[in-house]
Design a protein around this nucleic acid. Structure first.
Lengths: 227, 227
DNA sequence: CGCGGCGTTGATCTCTGTCAATACTTGTGG
DNA sequence: CCACAAGTATTGACAGAGATCAACGCCGCG
């Protein structure tokens, strides 16, 4: 299975590899497995020894923690261009979470030994990796703040604004995955999500199935700060 | 101000520097500022350009996010031997949080440029840094799971067990910092913390001011899994 | 001494989780 | 091609965990 032009474009813009020099990129990517997962398939399980990290070429992957009673906590959800599992891979430890395909997924597997070797021969590569992990860390800190300090309405509004990719004006887009998963990602139940979406109608958010319209992003953002 | 034997011992066992070869350690530490902060002093503010990371020699530091209304979210609390702010320092970005001294604090400032240089000349150093960040990442993931999936009682029980450093038997220790701060760290109000501590009496936890006695850690842990 | 921060307790409120019922979609197998 | 099962989404009723507001005692410190 070969990489398409499109795939290469995703890879070279990915958070993990964007800053890596072309020759190193070639060595890292070539010979590494281009793999596919069906919806619902597990990529790895919490506690598995970490031998690789992954760049998503297409589809969605969720990272989850499962407790002793089988209750599942969604830690993050990733899509095209995202890299995940770098942390565990560098220190050849164990994965702290499980990874499951939410949709059909294609991804690039990057062997951690290979990254290790590249860092030793080209230390600059280390900075790409450190930068990638740094970004991951910031995202987690953001999430902690959200859950600790924001209520359901604010978390959802913030999530929608993030999806819109805009700061002002009208925005129209589709929800990227099921509401069940969105609810889990936002730390609430599907029922709460449904109700909270209705509440946001007052702030100019229209929902029709997975179709979202934010009438004025600036207004929604103002509502966020105000409250 | 010189570093004591004790300080060196803390440094060489610190999460950031433990795996760094002695000669590199010397270069990193010597000439870097050994500094002190009074209780309540700010080390840096959210958004400041990150030029260094820090290893705590004594005292406690809290990392906080402050929103537009001045409401404060505690992200983490660090003590002796912990290193913080590595992430931002590597990529010479901005600090995503503010750092404030909770008690009087002594710390070692490690210039990020210096780390940068060391990585370039000795790539193995990069792995120490990556490992340190990887641990930080795991801690944040743990915290996200705690807040999302555990209630106040469970979070507190888990926190106390962590402090005790034991898995079974009787444990007696002091709370490391004020209950206001502990409450914030656990994502609840001081009032809730007070009430929750009372609830835990039924599970063999005795509280007298900042003095804690867990009659049987195994029992408390069982209570955690059970519920 | 008085003030401010900490800690506890009580009363109340509200957000969100839980349980339940229903409708819609999707896919699977007879 | 239909029937049935399973997953998804919405809505209602209800309960409970935890926040909020308020009062009070305590202690350290200027």
């Amino acid at each position: 299975m070969d990489l398409s032009k499109e795939d290469w474009s995703v890879i070279s813009r990915s958070s993990l590899l964007e800053a890596v020099p072309p020759d190193v990129l070639d060595r890292l990517v070539n010979g590494n497995a281009h793999m596919a997962l069906a919806k619902g398939e597990m990529l790895f399980e919490e506690g598995d020894p970490a031998m690789a990290c992954y760049v998503i070429l297409a589809g969605w992957i969720k990272l989850v923690r499962t407790d002793s009673e089988g209750h599942e906590t969604v830690v993050e959800v990733f899509s095209k261009g995202d890299c995940f599992a770098e942390a565990a891979a560098y220190v050849s430890g164990k994965y702290p979470v499980s990874a499951e395909a939410v949709t059909g997924v294609r991804l690039l597997r990057v062997d951690s030994q290979r990254i290790h070797d590249e860092i030793l021969s080209k230390p600059q590569v280390a900075f790409s990796m450190l930068a990638s992990m740094s970004r991951r860390l910031h995202r987690l800190v953001d999430q902690i703040e959200q859950i600790k300090a924001r209520n359901a309405t604010e978390r959802l509004a913030s999530f929608l604004l993030g999806l819109s990719g805009q700061n002002e004006g009208r925005a129209v887009f589709e929800l990227p995955f099921s509401k069940v998963l969105i609810a889990a990602r936002l730390g609430m139940t599907p029922e709460s999500l449904s109700r909270t979406l209705n509440q946001l109608r007052d702030q100019g958010v229209n929902v029709d199935g997975g179709h979202i319209e934010i009438k004025d992003c600036a207004r929604l953002r103002a509502f966020l700060s105000a409250n």
